[in-house]
Amino acid sequence: MMAIKATVRRNGDMAQEPRKKSRRISISNKRQITVPKEYYDYLEMETEANIELEGNKIVITPVRETNDDFLEFILKDLIDEGYGGEDLLQEFNRRKNNIRPAVEAWMKDAHENAENVESVSDLFEEDE
């Protein structure tokens, strides 16, 4: 049986975790599952979810996009670089919009490199 467990942030506050709920769901021949509407709505899910393997459980959690840390660093860099006024706003939006593609490219590269690793010790070998 799979368990769905989540702690949800709503408006910056930690939501009370609901009493444990369990429901049997089917898995398609393409290994797809459907999140029950009640769970989907309660967790305020959107178009993506994170999935983790925890022992013998699969844990699915909603993706919460938060670029606040990145945005603060971007703004500080722009101010340090002398941007101001309308130029600051335009450059901030340009850099902000590049965060997701940059992270996706980094993740793709990491996955491709991981495919070439045969063992964990390979990760720590010195380059010759």
Rank of each mutant, 00 (worst) to 15 (best):
M1I: 12
M2T: 11
M2R: 13
A3H: 06
A3Y: 04
I4E: 05
A6L: 11
A6C: 04
A6V: 10
T7R: 15
T7H: 13
V8N: 08
G12W: 04
G12P: 09
D13F: 12
D13A: 14
M14H: 10
P18K: 10
P18I: 05
K20F: 09
K21I: 13
S22V: 05
R23F: 09
R23C: 04
R23Y: 07
R24D: 13
R24G: 03
S26K: 08
N29G: 07
N29D: 10
N29V: 00
K30E: 07
R31A: 04
Q32Y: 06
I33H: 02
K37M: 12
E38D: 14
Y39L: 15
Y39M: 13
Y39N: 06
Y39Q: 06
Y40M: 06
D41A: 14
D41R: 11
Y42C: 04
E44T: 11
T47S: 14
T47L: 06
E48S: 08
E48A: 03
A49G: 08
A49H: 04
N50W: 12
N50E: 12
I51Y: 04
I51W: 01
E52G: 05
L53I: 13
L53E: 07
E54C: 03
G55L: 01
K57P: 02
K57G: 02
K57W: 08
K57I: 04
I58A: 06
V59H: 04
I60P: 01
T61Q: 11
V63S: 05
E65C: 04
T66R: 15
N67A: 15
N67I: 15
N67E: 14
D69T: 09
D69E: 14
F70K: 05
E72S: 14
E72F: 10
I74Y: 02
L75W: 11
D77L: 09
I79Y: 05
D80R: 04
Y83G: 05
G84V: 10
D87A: 15
L88G: 01
L88I: 04
L88A: 01
L89T: 09
L89D: 12
E91M: 15
R95H: 02
N97H: 12
N97F: 03
N98F: 02
R100P: 00
R100L: 05
P101G: 02
P101L: 04
A102Q: 11
A102H: 09
V103R: 14
V103C: 08
V103M: 12
E104A: 11
A105E: 06
A105I: 00
W106E: 15
W106D: 14
M107C: 00
H111M: 07
N113C: 07
N113M: 10
N116Y: 09
E118Q: 08
S119Y: 01
V120H: 00
L123G: 07
L123Y: 01
F124L: 09
E126W: 02
E126N: 05
E126H: 00
D127F: 09
D127M: 07
